[in-house]
Design a protein around this nucleic acid. Structure first.
Lengths: 245, 245
DNA sequence: CAAACGATATGATAAATGTCATAACATGAC
DNA sequence: GTCATGTTATGACATTTATCATATCGTTTG
């Protein structure tokens, strides 16, 4: 579009499109979308990307809508969920920054078969699917890194799902609490980003039984509970329950 | 390795390595590994691929071993499984031809974190990982198709796992029977490739309760059971149970 | 052939989970 | 403030599932 007159102008042009407002050089996904790209490719990403802010509770993706973008989570926390035939919601997984939001379906289906909702204030960064396809087509290193990244993500997702599937209620709840403590907040004290109802939708049990289990953990001295704030008082017990109970 | 003397010799050389014994042109994976490759690339696949036969019950991949190959199932049926901390086996999923055996881990981990065992006499076809990486690196069309294929597979796997997670025993068993009937054998009468114990390992319940549930289905006129042979007598009921029960 | 073993099957009972009812509490709407 | 609403919480009870015991059947082993 812009006619290049000289090397200098070209450089200037590149700087203009990458800056200001293009913070791709400082993206957490450097390793994937920056380090693997040459100048022109990075330019496509920089000018093509769209960042969006979502407040807690906002809908990011609606099940059934067309897939036009490849998105990932820059900051915040989201849940992936489906609505079953009887209208009940089932939480498939929880994604934190660096987990791809567009994990499932993007490269296969035309439409999302799940929804995404912000559990905390969140920021996403999206590229048009055609652009991503084009980049992959032209850049083998990017393709390999993307395969590796997606493989790692789905691997974890599948094994987490298996863990929950084979455990009983206490084990499922303990597993979920440990996920927040270890993988998300890196602390033994944190604010639960899920309601008890959502926890139930995730572990596949009833809300009452999730509440009861939390109460049991409290009575057993494993947890201290102040509303949504959870403090893990006996980490060893919780881990033991998550693994065997 | 072979010095090329002339165009003719080169052609001859290619024919020799692709034929005889190279049936890649007739592979079920044409769409992926043949249609996307040019002559030289196809040559790499043809000469590099290794086919292996496994009898029913044979171990194909052992959890914890190094990943050196990218494999898929040409014929037969296999189960993917893990051994949990207490030594109990958990079946992650069942794979039929065209499902990638090397679905998980291949592009991320150094080692398999699951095992693969033949449920029926099976044939696998494998390529060295380095060769696959090299092909992907050089061929964007192959990369995109592989991403699409893997995306489709993991998508189904994750949603299947979710379905089983949220259902009760009757629903889980019904879902599994429908999988065999619809996805594997395309018939309402088939021989169960799993023992009752393996079915239990898959649905995450006890062997006794799987047996009991099958008996219930028989008493309710939904199934006819002759040992391992299952005939679905009331498909509508079974589907209804798989969906709601 | 008998013996040993695993898979299938069923019953009795204990434990886990779901369902229904009720209440306390916080929050936002008016 | 009052009201309505949703979340958290607990109890009573019904249902589902796990555990343990036992028996049959078929296959393998010697």
């Amino acid at each position: 579009m812009t006619t290049i007159i000289s090397g200098y102008v070209n450089q200037h042009h590149l700087r203009m499109t990458r800056d200001p407002g293009c913070t791709c050089e400082y993206c957490e996904l450097r390793e994937l979308f920056v380090d693997n790209l040459d100048g022109d490719e990075l330019d496509i990403v920089c000018t093509g990307k769209v960042e969006r802010d979502y407040v807690q509770g906002a809908s990011i993706i609606k099940e059934g809508t067309q897939i036009r973008e490849f998105s990932y989570l820059k900051s915040g926390l989201v849940k992936l969920l489906r609505t079953d035939t009887s209208g009940k919601e089932q939480i498939i997984s929880i994604a934190k920054p660096m987990d791809y939001v567009s994990l499932l379906s993007v490269f296969s289906n035309q439409r999302y078969n799940y929804s995404v909702v912000a559990l905390e204030d969140s920021v996403t960064c999206s590229l048009k699917m055609e652009e991503v396809r084009s980049l992959i087509n032209d850049n083998g290193r990017l393709a390999l890194n993307l395969l590796s990244k997606m493989s790692r993500m789905t691997d974890k997702l599948i094994l987490d799902s298996l863990q929950i599937r084979v455990k009983h209620l206490r084990g499922r709840v303990a597993y979920l609490l440990l996920y927040f403590s270890e993988d998300v907040y890196s602390s033994d004290e944190f604010d639960l980003p899920l309601s008890r109802k959502e926890m139930a939708e995730y572990v596949g049990m009833t809300t009452e039984n999730v509440i009861r289990t939390l109460s049991e953990f409290r009575k057993d001295g494993i947890l201290k509970i102040y509303g949504k704030t959870i403090q893990i008082a006996n980490m060893d017990s919780l881990k033991s329950i998550a693994e065997f109970g």
